[in-house]
Design a protein around this nucleic acid. Structure first.
Length: 117
DNA sequence: CATTTGACTTTCG
DNA sequence: ACGAAAGCCAAAT
């Protein structure tokens, strides 16, 4: 059994530039369906410990979940990658990352690698 | 060991 | 479409 936050960190680090995932999807891909809040807490507490593309994680339906300065930063970082907002949301059908099935087979190895950092 | 916390999600009205 | 409320659950305290 791999430590949950390690799996979450690994998934987030795997999101390519120009793509996004929702909190729920990150949890699901990490093997913890229903763990969206753990993804949030992991980002809040560990985004400095690891070098994470934190801005590529968005709320359900493509809504930006951050507030205040973080919101401004997130929007700027996303738009720099070509992810544009419409009103207050991102179009998930366009920007949501669809991992290659092959990716799942190497997830465990990636987690092991991330544990060595 | 019990409680709090969190950049969430889903359902309802 | 929007806000409130209830649901969620492991790490952090």
């Amino acid at each position: 059994m791999i430590h949950q936050s390690a799996a979450i960190v690994t998934v987030i680090k795997s999101i390519p530039a120009g793509k996004v995932l929702t909190y729920g999807k990150v949890a699901e891909l990490a093997g913890y369906p229903g763990g969206a809040r753990q993804v949030a807490r992991t980002l809040h507490t560990q985004s400095k410990a690891y070098r994470l593309p934190w801005h590529r994680v968005v709320g359900a339906g493509g809504k930006i979940a951050t507030k205040g300065q973080a919101y401004e930063d997130q929007v700027r970082l996303l738009e720099a990658e070509g992810v544009m907002l419409e009103k207050t949301r991102i179009r998930l059908p366009i920007y949501e990352w669809q991992p290659d099935p092959r990716w799942f087979m190497t997830l465990e190895d990636q987690i092991q690698a991330s544990n060595l950092l």
